[in-house]
Write a protein that binds this DNA or RNA. Structure first.
Lengths: 380, 380
DNA sequence: CCGAATTGTTGGACCTCGCAACAAATACGG
DNA sequence: CCGTATTTGTTGCGAGGTCCAACAATTCGG
């Protein structure tokens, strides 16, 4: 983007932009390139772009059936990424952190010398306090009250605890900044893994609620006569529209996660009626919940991510029909309901964006972070 | 509040505060009084308080079965208020505006000479565009695409269209600033008239959504096997928890509005089993919806306003039980669910707060507004 | 009556940003 | 090939808002 475009977009003066670009350039966060084909007369404008090497972060994702680590530079540039499948169920905290350290070591050693590491961020399936990465509850990992942010910080030799957030919240952030939601200002992200999580961007800002637990739409009551839910209630959205419900309807209860998606896709391709029916029903329930969220949030765009991203073409029709049947006729604009574009990595990239956000908020205040040595594996 | 308290609260310097207070004083928006009993040593501090006369607005409410007009000064001080009942159903736009002008004339003539009128604000039962008060849809008034803000502006001889907003959104604002939500930062307001409306304050700011239609929780699907709704759908929250459902359950379908509330209160006092049962059931449905909103918004406080404010003591128990059964165990803090404290005037006061908000945003830019003469009644 | 404590006030300094003029680089018409 | 219009980056200056440090005002406690 050129300087004058920046001036127009930000509403700031050209001279102010020049000043800021100068400072960011000195900090190594942006660079200017000769500029491309010019349209019309006038002095050609060099293109200003973020310099990914200027600020790199380590992003971590602890998901239901996999974990991942990545090194990501300013602007969302992914340098390296490792994902590892894990069986669902309990995992010890120590073991998990060891594994993270192991995966991170490999990625960090690949970083070039000019790359400045400035922070870390973690996406967790569970209820997490953002500021210090305290995991209140993560049923899918079997964790409760784990000071993950502090543990990671001490393990990597950092001063401050590592920030962490809910997977769906970070998925929303990533799709908003780098994915299907670019250009929107109000976004609702619906991600499904075992349950259904949601994250909301309101006017460009993540909506966190008073304690950071906003967006727990998975347990929205939607069918009082519905199935029993793990949470003890009945007829929660995720019991009607979640993975388990889909699998049961399709007669595939022994499949989970990616395997389930593949199996269903396969059966749909061969026109299996039970699979088609299951998608129809599940899409309808998904649509009801999404319709509720649209009524409540009035977003630009709803992004369907997680497992259902791949199935979206098969879910679209019933989903949209159900949502439209609920949504009040908003005059003028129509909401777009679209699949995510970042796939399984949405939350991982969101964790990176979160870790990079201090750089964007106050570039001058950010310092390089040095993990103590290539961190060693305590128990390896 | 004293100057040093202000400095502490805002984080600004004492000298900055002095400067700002000086400017606001010159504009007549604040005044300093000798200051009260001092605690401890030190120079005594005069108390700075908003001067209601400095900025007065005309607030208007167009509700389901009544309309109201009030003159309100800075800080929420009500100078005068008129409310008039109207039969439910269609009302012509012209007739309504005439009536508003009539009621406003009386109130404006009572204003003292030192009171500066700076704007107007309208609360409407319906879907309204805030910026220019365009009423997209107000089924309860029988209105569709009425440029109410512009009509009022031309009738009162103002330059800019009058701002208007949804009743529930303004109820939320009023309860947040002046009512049961004072001190909270994240508030969900649930107001019931004919249907159920909701308004949300997130981190001190009204949550509007991309087009200003956020918070339409009344048509949240909550019971797919439920009653048919006016909106064409089935099992919306308001069909299960709204006024009509309550009346029907209590066997009082021929009562509406305030009369219904009185009749029910009366029957409850005499232990009428059908009334008690109706409250129990309605409270439960209310609680389910509120629980959903709590999960999604993670608020400090939920304020129940509108018709149900008075019935709240009788609704509390089933309502809280239902809500708690849905809400995920938020560690630490508990949400408070409380009745509103502003009663039927919540939306009216909210309209005043909305009209006053430009003064708070930029006191220097606000000019006195002069309605053309005491506005005359064109058709009277 | 004097020191400690608190608070309002004053003058100077800094930082951010906008404005206006100028310089640089291109397209287009002759 | 040259001059003009056009767009854009750059420079110097000024306005506004804020903080800091020192000082003045006022009260409490000994």
């Amino acid at each position: 983007m050129s300087r004058s475009e920046l001036a127009q977009k930000t509403g700031l003066n050209r001279s102010t932009i020049a000043d800021l670009i100068g400072e960011l350039g000195r900090l190594g966060l942006v660079e200017e390139k000769p500029g491309i084909a010019t349209a019309g007369p006038g002095r050609p404008s060099p293109v200003v772009s973020p310099r990914p090497e200027g600020a790199t972060v380590l992003a971590i994702e602890l998901s239901v059936d996999s974990m991942a680590v990545a090194t990501v530079g300013l602007g969302g540039h992914v340098y390296g990424k490792v994902r590892r499948s894990r069986a669902r169920g309990r995992h010890s905290v120590d073991e998990t952190i060891d594994e993270v350290v192991h995966m991170a070591r490999a990625l960090l050693s690949e970083l070039g010398g000019d790359q400045v590491l400035v922070g870390m961020g973690v996406a967790v399936v569970g209820v997490v306090r953002r500021s210090d990465g305290f995991v209140h509850l993560a049923p899918n990992l079997g964790w409760k009250n784990v000071p993950l942010g502090a543990l990671l910080a001490s393990r990597f030799g950092l001063g401050d605890p590592v920030m962490a957030a809910n997977e769906a919240d970070l998925g929303a952030l990533a799709e908003y900044r780098r994915g299907a939601g670019v250009g929107a200002s109000h976004l609702v992200y619906v991600g499904s893994e075992v349950g259904i999580g949601s994250g909301i961007i309101q006017d460009g800002q993540p909506m966190l609620g008073v304690a950071g637990y906003a967006g727990e739409a998975g347990h929205m009551l939607i069918n009082p006569k519905g199935r029993e839910c793990r949470c003890g209630s009945r007829g929660c959205w995720e019991t009607e529209a979640g993975e388990a419900a889909l699998a049961e309807r399709a007669g595939l209860s022994n499949f989970v996660g990616q395997r389930l998606i593949e199996e269903i896709t396969c059966r749909v391709d061969s026109r299996d009626p039970q699979a088609l029916e299951a998608l129809e029903t599940t899409g309808t329930w998904l649509g009801y919940g999404i319709g509720n969220l649209i009524n409540v949030f009035n977003p630009d765009v709803v992004v369907v991510g997680g497992l259902y991203q791949e199935l979206f073409p098969h879910l679209r029709e019933p989903l949209e029909a159900a949502a439209r049947s609920i949504v009040l006729d908003a005059p003028g604009e129509q909401v777009r309901i679209v699949p995510g574009s970042l796939g399984v990595d949405a939350a991982l990239l969101g964790a990176a964006e979160m870790a990079l956000s201090p750089v964007i908020a106050d570039p001058a205040a950010v310092r390089a972070v040095t993990p103590t040595q290539p961190p060693d594996l305590a128990k390896a």
